[in-house]
Structure formats: C-alpha cells, structure tokens
Design a protein around this nucleic acid. Sequence first.
RNA 1: GGCCCUAUCGUCUAGCCAGGUCAGGACGCCAGGUUUUCAUCCUGGAAACCGGGGUUCGAAUCCCCGUAGGGUCACCA
Length: 564
Amino acid sequence: MIPTVITRFAPSPSGSLHIGGARTALFCWAFARHVDATGGRGSFLLRMEDTDQARSSEASAKAILEDLAWLGIDWDEGPALAFDGREIGGDPRGVGPWEQSRRAETYDKYFAKLFDHGLAYPAFETPEELAAIRAEAQARKETFRYTQRADYDHGKAMERMAREEHVLRLKVPPEPIVVRDEVLGEIRFTSEHFDDFVIRKKDGFPTYHFAVVVDDALMGVTHVLRGQEHLNNTPKHVALQRALGFDTPVYAHMPLIFNEKGAKMSKRERDQAARQAVREAKMTASPVGSIAQGEFDAWLRDKTKQLGHDELEALAAHLHLALPEVSVDDFRRAGYLPAVICNFIALLGWTPSKHEDGSDREKFGMDFLGCDFELERIGKTNARFDRVKLAAFNQDALAALSDDGFLAAWRTWAERYDEELVTALGAERMALLAGSVKPRVKTLSEGRGIVAFALSAPGAYDAKAVEKVLRKGEPSGVDMLRTFDREVLQPWEGAFAHEAVEAAIAKWCEIKGTKAGAIAQPLRVAITGGTVSPPIGMTLAAVGLDEVRERIARCIEAVAAMPK
RNA sequence: GGCCCUAUCGUCUAGCCAGGUCAGGACGCCAGGUUUUCAUCCUGGAAACCGGGGUUCGAAUCCCCGUAGGGUCACCA
C-alpha cells in the first residue's frame, strides 16, 4: 500500500543533533504515525543533506541516526540502522539513495531540464565580487537582489560556461507567490523580495533549495514540517517547484525553540557560556592541556569557533561551570530519559488533546503522541526552553519507575557514561541503593552524588553539623555514637541489612527512650560528613558494618581534634 | 534597514477560528502538613489577557494602528 502521507526529516550531518532538530523529527514522525492511527498510511523518511562538502561528515551522520533511534523516533524509509534490536530504515519504494551527495545524476538531469527551458542561467561573479556589490547596496541602505544582467547573452554564456567557473541561477518570474501554511495560514510574498538565487554551486553540487525541492518531489513527500526559520525559503521552493513542474507539498512551519535569553537555541550556546565564564574569570592562558594556547586564543576571539566536546567539558570543569545541554547527546549524557525528552519537546509548540474528563494533559508517551498528533494543534508562538521544567518531568518519570526499572536505567546509563561508578559501587550495592536514589535525583548523572558516601569515607565534617548534631546536648551526639557502637554494632550478629539495621535502631531508641533522630543524625555525620543521606538503615547497610564502625571511630577522633 | 511571523501568569500553555466562564492546568515560587535528615508525597496561596482605537448590549476572543519580541536576507542547510 502506497503511503497517503509522507513526511521527512532532512538534517545536515555537520554536527550533533540538537534539540530543535529533534523536535522537528519528532513532529514529522508523529504526524506519519497519526495518519496510520486514523486509517491512512503514513511514512516518515530520513534523508541526509550533505551537499556542503566542507562541513558534512559520516561520523556526524551516524551520530544523528543513533540519537534519533535512542529517542525512539524510528524512520520508515532512510539509511539502515540496527539499534537496540530494532532494524530501522530501508527503501521499500526504491526512492533512495538518502545521501544527497550520492544523487548527483538526478540533480544534473533536472539542471539540464531547467537550463534547456531557459529557466536557469549561468552567472560568473565570484563570491568576492558579490560581497562587494552587497556591501555597496547596504551602504545605500538597499537590499541587494540578483537579477539577470540586462546584457545577458545566452550564446556567450554558453561559451564561457565551458571554460569558466560559474554557478547556475534560477530565473524567477516576477509574480507574487502565496504560500499556504497549515499553521500560519496564507502568506503573500511579492516578487520584488526574492531574486534569482543560486541552484548549483560552482563545485557542481546543488544548493539546499534545489536539492530539497527535487528530493522531496521524487521521494513523494506530501507534508513538509519544519521550523519557522525556513518560512522565507518557502517562496523560493515554490518557485522552483513551478519551474520543474512539481506539485507543492503541504507546508507547516512550526514555532522556534528559544534559549533562556529568548533567542533561537543554537549549537554554539555551550561555547558561548564557556567563553563568557572565561572572560569573567579574566583568564587568558589555556587552563586545559588538550587546548593549545593558539587554539584557545582563536576560540576566545571568534565567537563562531567551537571547541571539541571533551575539550569544552574539561574547560567547564576547570571553571566549575555547568554547560547548558543543547544537543540530544548532551541530554543523554546528563541522564535524561528519551521518552521524557520527547514528551517535553512535544509540548514546545504543540498541545495534546485533553483528557476525557476535560482536564489538561501534559504527560504522555510516544504511543499516545503517535495517535494524537494533529497539525491544527501546532502553535504559532516561539517557546522558551525551560530546563527546570524538563528536569521536573524527568524526576517524575524516574520516580514513576519501579525500583528494578530505575536500577536498569541507572546501570545502563552508568555503564556508558560513568563506568567507574559501576566498578566502585558494584552490582549488589547499586541494586541496594537504587530505591533510595530514585526519588532524590532529577537526572541519572545525579545518582553519583547521592551514593558518594558509599564510595569513600568523608574527607571532612560539616562544621555546623558537628556543632549541632555531635557536640550539643547531654548526652552529646558523640556520646550517643559511642554507646550505639558499643551496644548495637559491636555485638551485631547476622546480616547487616537495611531493614535489620532500621529495626535495631528503632528498638534501641525505644529502650533508651530517645527519638530516632538523636542517633540517626550523629550517625549520618559520622558516615557521610553531613546531615543529608538516604534513610539511615540504608546508609549504614550500603557502607557495611566494619566500615561503619571504623568511620564512627574516626569521626569521634576528628571531632575531638576540631576547634570549638 | 527591507521582508516575514508572533504577542494570555516568571516560563510552557488552555481558552480565540464558531464573542458572554470567578481566564483553567503544569513547572517554578510562597505558606502549611507527613517524615529520623534530605528527597518524595499531601493541602493551600500569590501570579497573566502588551498599549490605544474601533465593531458589539457585551471583546482575551473580530478589525485597524502602535509597541515589543523573533526569524530571514550566502556558491550553509
């Protein structure tokens, strides 16, 4: 059965998949699934726009594929990828290849068609010449538009083409173009606002505008969902479709995702944050070995320059700076759940249907999104990316997991991004602590902080806690620790398990006629150095009997040595 | 600067298209409560229709003008 609706996501493999791209892909995916759910047949296809030879890389293409797959955004047609037991992609209709760099023959055919019909013509100005003309126009406060020169001579142009570098431009007819957009309505562009734009670069590759129109048409794309930054490109694409005799697909331009500052979220955000911190710290020498001084200077001066991921992380660590997550991979490393990311970004610019009882819906999974996604509920206003709310969503989702489910997610994450934690903690203690970590973290990466006490003895004791919990009172906390150690820990028999410890503490307190806090807090300080930790039984069990007694002894000693 | 888009709590938004509700929800914030700490959890609260004109008995909702924000102006995509 031939799909009735075909959507596509066509990233440029020149970096990592950022959150805005992920949302575009998600909406394209969701719309295709929605068509499936309503009796039609939808297909979501993935294409790589790699016509920029200098910037594109295969590594980036692969990473983008993986990021999408990890998010659960599977493409029906496109590059093949095996991920997590799923076989994604393929070419059931035979409309590939999916990399534009491999479609040169196809483009050449359509270039020839346009050229033969006099709808495209060569131009010989160099980029420098064009830049000069633009600068002149700008000095006169005019906008430069390229139109065919009055003295254009086709015969001469043909001759020059054979021996001179040139581009191909589309001869755009002087008529207004009305774009029908599913989100924004009808938008009228008058002809004086677009020019004879380049469709083939001097290296022979098509420009984005040309490739996108040809590929969308040949691949049967029926619905183009993309960000509003493309709105001004649309009349160009429509002009091209007319020249080539293609149908115009349905367009839906969605609102942009903004950063905290209210500007379009950009891949350069992390570098900007780091650069600002460096300036504020008045740092001039590269503090990280892997960043050469020359590179550091250039990066500091040129705000378009980006450092490698690891270099940037190292620099941020040196500055004690938390870099904002921008790409899908950033969020993955930080320990956000893919379903939460999808849920959250779906809410940026789109609203789900209400619950049956009329109340607002906010939390939902991919299955629901695939059924519920309708174009008419896409909004028009740009949305600020609220990291705090995303974190709250992630925390809720984590908390909703069963203990085993959380453990699995935590371990999978740690095995990939914090191998040392897995080794140091061990499978058993990780399982023991998972239930305590679960309600205390917003992201999986925060787990390490919660279990830090189990990894090593405190290096120092919080002064305030020592004063309040260990020194004050009669008997003092230190006295309580001594007695507790002597009466409960020293004679301990059997497994030193969470519940057993908890029960022993409760019983001991009853006998002593004190509140549980009177011993729990001193124990916390002795074991962790501070007053905050998981339930006391769990805290002790995770550390182990011998180590607990050792830490108590060391704490008592340390407190005695501390100044009052 | 030209063109294009947009405008409801601090933020994401419902309500607008088919004018009439104390303008609803979520995150955050504040105040209580539960709890051996922290976190979780529960209850309550403050918090918005950008401004000005119209149309109308009645405007967040329709129209116009301002203002503000954003996007875009490449041989990048």
